[in-house]
Design a binder for these strands. Structure first.
Lengths: 221, 221
DNA sequence: TAGATTGTTAATCGATTAACAATC
DNA sequence: TAGATTGTTAATCGATTAACAATC
């Protein structure tokens, strides 16, 4: 957390949900949806923990952020908990997003969202490659990059996915901010330099590969 | 970290590099490669920190894991540091991997690796979809899933990327382990139940979306 | 030498885990 | 009531940050 966000959190006198907790929440949601489909009405924190391989007290603490109360000897109501999680995560309403850079990863994310609940809906993709412009990926049209400015005037989209080549990432990010985007999911390796109030989620695939390789090589020593 | 890995770490009397540090290392590498291309021979921790928006003392601590020593008033040698990072991360030699599930995300990861240094090289992809079998994605062939067993006998691949639908993830993971795979990069939402010595890297796109959405909604309140 | 930077050691901060009281 | 489970409060653990000595 940067100093700026810390100050904001303090000013609002409301503590932020820790990032590790937030990252676990979709996992609970998927699991709960699965057991709910199987007809399970109630489930306890210890049994969730066993399935998801995490500490039962952590499950209790994590789920507490939704405000849902469990009953001793019974556990949590799966229906109530699913809805509370969806609500808390913002997965229950459409979060419209732009995507810039309809390359491999970009296309995958667009196609991915149709099968898996991502919480986001890409309503338009942009690229400068003329062979891509005019095509549809899934149901999403790929538009010419210059159309971004015009379209953003009409649509009021706050989220953007950045899957461009590294060398144009900063430039595109600045354009996005000028178009009213407030949160950027950055898949490039560039560290974006943007106004403090812009929310940036850096996600580099190499980071995970690094952890995997290190643990693997470590285990051999 | 599970109890089992903790025990192993203790037994070997060698402390593991913290995961947050590991995740940052590829970022340093990309940045250093960039400045090295620009002809920069030496760089100090404070200037790296400024560019990458992180604490200079953290930069020093992170880079210390590579064993490279910096010089006061000069900084680190970019060439030496790049090589040490590549070496430490295992990015300097080919880490062969299988990929199961040549759907959208799977295809993207295969295509992605050709443009971005992932540290992994997918040498064969497997699927049960007959329309995909026989095709090539990038230079990687998509083979019939049943061929996995035969091929793994010959090739000794230790890493697998799992991008199947959720409902077959556990089953496929077990097959992979039986084929000698030691580390699985799991993109499904299933929590895999596998022997303790198997290294699992769970990576769910929804987790990041969750953090992004929460921070965005939080900032509005 | 003076000054900037590294590198180590200590302090802080935050998340996880443990303990236990409250509750149905 | 008895017992399992929640939920809160305290303890632990680990990573980050700060302080400062060492060094070129």
């Amino acid at each position: 957390m940067t100093k700026a966000t810390k100050v904001i959190a303090l000013r609002k006198n409301r503590k932020q949900v820790p990032e590790p907790t937030l990252r676990r929440l979709p996992g609970y949601l998927f699991f709960l949806e699965k057991v709910r489909e199987q007809g399970v009405m109630n489930i306890s924190a210890p049994s969730i923990g066993k399935e998801l391989k995490c500490d039962p007290t952590q499950v209790v603490k994590d789920l507490a952020v939704t405000g849902v109360k469990g009953k001793p000897r019974v556990g949590y109501n799966t229906y109530e908990l699913c809805h509370a999680l969806e609500d808390f995560l913002g997965f229950n309403h459409v979060n419209e997003a732009f995507l810039v850079g309809a390359g491999n990863l970009g296309s995958a994310l667009m196609a991915y969202q149709e099968h898996q609940t991502l919480g986001l809906k890409v309503i338009a993709a942009f690229d400068v490659d003329e062979t891509k412009i005019g095509q549809h990926i899934g149901n999403t049209p790929v538009l010419e990059y210059s159309k971004l400015f015009h379209l953003s005037n009409r649509l009021d989209v706050e989220i953007a996915i950045l899957t461009t080549p590294n060398n144009v990432a900063q430039e595109v990010a600045e354009d996005l901010v000028n178009c009213g985007v407030k949160a950027i999911w950055n898949f490039t390796h560039e560290i974006l330099d943007l106004p403090d109030h812009i929310i940036i989620q850096n996600t580099s695939m190499s980071s995970f590969a690094a952890v995997l390789l290190q643990r693997l090589n470590d285990s051999k020593k």
